[in-house]
Nucleic acid binder design. Structure first.
Lengths: 348, 348
DNA sequence: TTGTATGCGTTATCAG
DNA sequence: CTGATAACGCATACAA
C-alpha cells in the first residue's frame, strides 16, 4: 500500500496517519459527533499534511444524497436564460449544492429522457424551465421521487412548485406607463391572435387600457422579428392612421418599427411612443427602447429557495406552491421621459 | 425486504426477479461480457418490469469515473458565455457526459476553491475560462490530477490544452474589410494603451493596416461603454478631423459613436465607416454594426474534443496543445455594403 | 468518547 | 458462460 503521490488519500490513510480509527477520523472531519480535542487535532493535522479531500462520490452513496441539483433548460432560448443560470448557480452555491445543467430539445421524449438521466445521477432536486406545456406534464410526473420546481412558465401540475411571471401585471405596468405619457390609443405589433399566449397578452393590453381610456387595436400579424416590425410599421404609415403608442411583442420588433418611423420622419417618442413587451438582451444596458424585463435573477433565487425548502420538508404534505414575480419596466428613449401634465392636473 | 414502490429497485432486485446472480444481471445491463440469450432476456424483462435504473453514484464509486466534467466560468461575462455553455453542454451530451457548472469570482482564492470542489466531486475533466491570467496558473496546477482545457484565453501553462482566439487574424480581417471599402485612416476608440491586451490590439490594428496603406491613430482613452463612445465621438467632431473609419473596442462603444455621428449629420457609412472589435450580443441578429464575433460554439466544441481526447490518452506524454480559432466578421450597416472600386481597378 | 463492523449499489476478479 | 465475493470510500449502529 505504498502512498502513490498521484492517488488521492482516503479517510483510511488519514486515520492511519493520525493513529485512530476511520470512524473517528470521519467524525472529526464531518463534525457529526464529539471527539476529544487531542484526537481532533491529530486527525486534522494528518488530513492537512496528506492533503486529504473527502470523496463526495462515496459520501453520496453512503448518504443517499448527492448535494446536486439538475437544471433543465430549453435549448432555443439560451441567451435569455443566462441570467437564470447564473442566479440559480449562485444561489445553489450558498447552499453548498452543485448544479448539473442539461438542455432539452422541444420534443417530449428527449425532455423526459433528460429528467430520467438526471435522476440516474441521483440529483437531490430538479429545476426545469418547461419547453412546452404538455411535454413537461409527464416529465414532471417521472421526477416524482425528488422535489421539482418549474420556472418561467406555469404548467398545470399539482405535484410541483413553480415560479412564474405575472404577465397581466406586467402588461398593466406598461400600459399605465404609456397612458401616463399621453397615449390614448395603442397599436399592438407582432402578436399572433391564433396563438393562445399572444391572444392572452392582447386581452391583457385591452383590459389594462380600458379603465385608463386607452383604446387597443392589433396590427395584422407580422412575425415577431426585426423584419416583422419593419413591415408592420410601413403598413401603418401607408394607412396614414398612426396611433399614439405602439406596443411590440419584443425588442427586435420594436427596433424595426423604430427604424422605419424615424426614417420616415415620425418623431419618436414625440408623436408616437414605442415600447416592447419582452426584453431580448437582459445582459445589456441599452436604453433605446422601453421594455419589460423578466426578473430572471429573482426567479432563479426563488426557484432554489422553493427547492431547498421542499427538500427540507420531505415528501409529506406536498402542496404545490406558485410564486408570481412582476417583471421590471425598463424605461428607454422610445417613450417620453416623464408623465405628461394633463389639462385637469394643470387647472388643479 | 418489502418492495417499497417509492424506493428505486437495485441490481439485486433485478437479479432476484430474473433468478440470476447480480454479476450476471450487471453483465447483461452493461454488456461487458457475453451472457446466454436465455438469461439475457430474463434479466432485461426483469429490469424493464421493475423500472430499474442504474445508480450512477455507485457505479462511479466502483469505476473511479463519474462521466462528468466541470465548467468554470467567470461570473461577470455571463451573457457572452451562454453560447459557450450551450455548445459545451451539447457536445458533452454526445459523449454521454454530464456538465457541472460553476462560476468564479474575479479572485484567485475562490477560483482555486472552485476547482478543488470540482475535484472533490471527482469530475473526469475540467474546462475553465480563466478570469485572469495569474489567478488561473495555480488553479490549473491544482487540477493536475484530471485533464484541463482552458478556453477563451491563453494562459502560460504547459500542462493544459487550450482553445483561444486568433486575435491578430481577427484584427486583420476587420482592417481589410475597411480598407477594401475605401478606408485610408482609422481612429481607434475605447482602447486603453496601458492595458496590455488593448495595447496589443492597437498594435495589431497598426500592423494590419500598414501594408494596405491605412494609417492608425488611437483616440484619447474613454471607457469601453456607450457613454465612452459618445464622448469620444463628440471630441472627434469638435477637433474637426474625422477619419475615414472608426474602430471601436466593442459594440456598445460603437453604438455611442454611431448615435453622435448621425445626430450631428455625419453620413455613416457614407463618409465615415464604423466597426466594432467585439460583438456583445452573440445571440441577437442585429446587423446595425459591423463587428467581430467570437466563435463560441466552435470553441466549446473544440474544448470538449480536446478534453475527451486527453482523457482517452491518459496522463502520459501530456504535451499542451493550443488551438486557435478565427473570429467571424459580421458585416453590418455601419460599413459599406461592398468593396469600393478603386481607380486602378476601374482603368484595368 | 472510541473502535468494530456493516452496508450504500456496482463492477471486476477469480473459481467453477 | 455463470456465480460468489471482494473492493470502491465513506458514515453510522452498535458495542465497549
Amino acid at each position: 500500500m505504498g502512498v502513490d503521490p498521484h492517488e488521492q488519500p482516503t479517510l483510511a490513510d488519514v486515520a492511519e496517519r493520525a493513529g485512530v480509527s476511520v470512524a473517528t477520523a470521519s467524525r472529526v472531519l464531518t463534525g457529526a459527533r464529539p471527539v476529544s480535542d487531542d484526537l481532533q487535532r491529530k486527525v486534522r493535522d494528518a488530513s492537512r499534511s496528506l492533503g486529504y479531500r473527502r470523496n463526495t462520490v462515496a459520501s453520496s452513496l453512503r448518504l443517499q444524497r448527492t448535494e446536486t441539483v439538475g437544471l433543465v433548460l430549453p435549448r432555443y432560448a439560451t441567451s435569455f436564460l443566462s441570467a437564470l443560470i447564473e442566479s440559480v448557480s449562485t444561489e445553489l452555491e450558498r447552499h453548498e449544492l452543485s448544479l448539473v445543467l442539461r438542455y432539452s430539445e422541444p420534443d417530449a421524449l428527449h425532455d423526459a429522457d433528460n429528467i430520467v438521466s438526471l435522476l440516474d445521477r441521483r440529483v437531490d432536486g430538479i429545476i426545469v424551465c418547461p419547453p412546452s406545456l404538455e411535454v413537461s406534464r409527464e416529465s414532471i410526473q417521472a421526477a416524482a421521487s425528488v422535489p421539482v420546481v418549474q420556472v418561467g412558465r406555469f404548467v398545470d401540475t399539482d405535484r410541483s412548485d413553480s415560479v412564474g411571471l405575472d404577465e397581466d401585471r406586467a402588461t398593466a405596468l406598461l400600459v399605465t406607463h404609456l397612458a401616463d405619457r399621453g397615449a390614448t390609443s395603442i397599436r399592438a405589433v407582432g402578436f399572433d391572435e391564433s396563438v393562445p399566449a399572444d391572444a392572452r397578452r392582447l386581452q391583457a393590453l385591452g383590459s389594462a387600457g380600458a379603465p385608463l381610456g386607452v383604446s387597443l387595436a392589433a396590427a395584422p400579424f407580422t412575425p415577431a422579428v426585426l423584419e416583422g416590425g419593419i413591415r408592420a410599421a410601413e403598413r401603418l404609415l401607408d394607412e396614414g392612421a398612426l396611433p399614439r403608442a405602439i406596443v411590440c411583442a419584443n425588442d427586435d420588433v420594436a427596433s424595426g418599427v423604430l427604424a422605419v418611423l424615424r426614417m420616415r420622419g415620425v418623431a419618436v417618442p414625440g408623436s408616437v411612443q414605442v415600447a416592447s413587451m419582452l426584453d431580448l438582451s437582459p445582459g445589456r444596458e441599452d436604453h433605446s427602447i422601453t421594455t419589460l424585463r423578466h426578473p430572471w435573477p429573482e426567479m432563479g433565487r426563488e426557484a432554489v429557495r422553493l427547492l431547498v425548502d421542499a427538500a427540507a420538508r420531505g415528501s409529506d404534505d406536498r402542496i404545490a406552491r406558485r410564486v408570481s414575480l412582476a417583471p421590471q419596466l425598463v424605461p428607454g428613449g422610445s417613450t417620453l421621459p416623464s408623465p405628461v401634465i394633463t389639462p385637469q392636473e394643470q387647472s388643479a
